[in-house]
Computed example of a mutant assay.
Amino acid sequence: METTFACTCCGWLRSLSGRVTVGSDALCWSCAEEHTILCDRCGERVYRREAFRYRDRTLCAPCYEQVNNQ
């Protein structure tokens, strides 16, 4: 049974207990804090580069589409 994983961003081997998943990527907590953010609407963790700002809120793509088309 594996107890470590390689972080998608930094490549370091880390304990599975500290794994943060973003889509199909597995990130260490440090990289997750630096490169991701939580959607203010649904709570999904997304990469900062893929997040949208809408009326002072950070949104993932699906939530942005929903509120922008209302």
Rank of each mutant, 00 (worst) to 15 (best):
E2A: 06
G11V: 03
D25T: 02
T58D: 11
C9R: 14
E34P: 00
T58K: 06
E34V: 07
C28N: 10
G11C: 01
I37G: 02
T3I: 12
G23C: 01
C28W: 07
R48Q: 14
Q70G: 12
W29E: 14
Y54G: 01
G23N: 05
E33H: 06
R19D: 10
W29C: 08
T3K: 09
S17F: 14
E2P: 10
F5S: 06
V20D: 10
N69S: 14
R14I: 00
R45N: 11
L16I: 04
R14A: 05
C10T: 06
T21Q: 11
R48F: 14
L16V: 02
R48C: 11
E33Q: 12
Y54N: 05
L59S: 04
H35A: 05
T36N: 03
T4R: 03
T21F: 02
V67S: 08
A6Q: 08
N69F: 10
D40P: 03
R41H: 10
A32N: 07
C9S: 12
V46P: 01
R53K: 08
H35K: 05
C39L: 02
E44A: 10
T4I: 03
W12A: 09
E33V: 03
C63W: 02
E50W: 01
T4A: 05
E2Q: 08
Y54P: 01
E44W: 09
D40G: 06
P62N: 05
R53Y: 09
L59Y: 06
F5H: 08
C9Y: 12
Q66V: 07
C42E: 13
P62E: 10
C28D: 15
